[in-house]
């Protein structure tokens, strides 16, 4: 596998876009840019699936399987059989 991060779960439906511009405001990686009629998906491969665009899109024109890209939490979840990993207050948390 050359690049595990080349594709992701981000899906954008320009038909549903109302051009409010919030997606290009909230995205920390410049995935969206403002366009003339609708938002432009300019660098989809930079998406880290944080989910901010989907959550803030009032037209529900963006879909993404959001989650935390943290191997520690995912491996721990796989070993303990618990459900989807999130950062916690425990000492082994991945977030600082």
């Amino acid at each position: 596998m050359l690049n595990a991060y080349r594709s992701n779960t981000l899906q954008y439906d320009p038909e549903g876009c109302i051009n409010c511009g919030i997606c290009s405001v909230v995205c920390p990686h410049g995935v969206f840019a403002t366009g003339d009629g609708v938002a432009q998906l300019v660098s989809p491969q930079a998406c880290m699936e944080c989910g901010a665009c989907q959550l803030n899109c009032p037209a529900e024109a963006i879909q993404v399987e959001s989650g935390v890209g943290c191997a520690t939490a995912m491996i721990r979840a796989a070993l303990t059989g618990k459900k989807e990993p999130v950062c916690g207050t425990d000492s082994s948390s991945c977030c600082s």
Binding site: M1, A4, Y5, S7, N8, T9, P28, H29, A46, C47, M48, E49, E65, S66, G67, V68, G69, C70, A71, T72, A73, M74, I75, A78, C87, C94, C95, S96
Partner: peptide, 20 residues
């Protein structure tokens, strides 16, 4: 394991890395 400390790795990408 450092993926979780960075501000750019996606969950689907990390999952692919884990499996591979």
């Amino acid at each position: 394991n450092f993926t979780g400390s960075t501000p750019f790795t996606s969950r689907s990408g990390v999952r692919r890395e884990i499996f591979a």
